[in-house]
Write a protein that binds this DNA or RNA. Structure first.
Lengths: 118, 118
DNA sequence: GAGGATTGCGCAATTT
DNA sequence: AAAATTGCGCAATCCT
């Protein structure tokens, strides 16, 4: 612990601990510095990317939420439209018995359509 | 810069710089330490929460994606069903002219339903 | 203004 | 060997 602080104070490379004095082998100190600097850059870069991804994920959520609402609305509309048609259909069938509809259980027919087309 | 390192080495509180020597006033050093420890805990806590939120956001995206697919499927099904009904309707109307349908533009009627119900 | 919460930054270990 | 990722601590700053 204290050694670490001393290393920092004297700008020594921790990996070279004990191999040399303070005044010589500055190449290795320099190399250590270069290494640290490169890593610091890499860290910044990595964290930036990470933040970007997080931000994109938030954006994604909002897009999906909007899309979802649109779809819900569409389903609602289609369902109403379908309901209206069914009622119109049944009303007509009951008022004007017709060969085309005789013997057809409209309710069942209409219910079955979606399953048939799945 | 160098002062900071010395402070670290001697475990001095930066805010108390110059107010005292190294050997006395350990209360303040202790206070500094306690402060740092509390902050370190707060940092851990905060980062944990941050990770939690990120994770939840990812989960949210997946849920929404699934929900979206379900809704798309439903829309597709309803649309097909509706299309089928319209065709059946039109076929019947053309085959058996009826007072109930006379003068009604079925295509227009069917198209207009959704707008009416919006 | 004290104290927790966030955030940027650097170090070092680990991963790729 | 080098870059990317990750945990961690410090300090500045934000927020309450």
């Amino acid at each position: 612990m204290i050694l670490d602080e001393l290393e920092e104070f004297f700008d020594m490379a921790p990996t070279k601990r004990g191999k040399r004095g303070v005044s010589d082998a500055d190449d290795e100190d320099d190399e250590y510095r270069r290494k640290r600097d490169r890593n610091n850059e890499a860290v910044k870069k990595s964290r930036f990317k990470s933040k970007q991804r997080t931000q994109e994920t938030f954006t994604r959520v909002n897009k999906l939420k909007a899309e979802n609402q649109m779809l819900e609305e569409k389903v609602k509309t289609l369902t109403k439209e379908l309901q209206f048609l069914k009622e119109l259909f049944l009303a007509h069938a009951s008022n004007t018995p017709n060969a085309k509809f005789d013997g057809i259980d409209l309710d069942k027919l209409l219910e079955d359509i979606p399953d048939d087309k799945k």
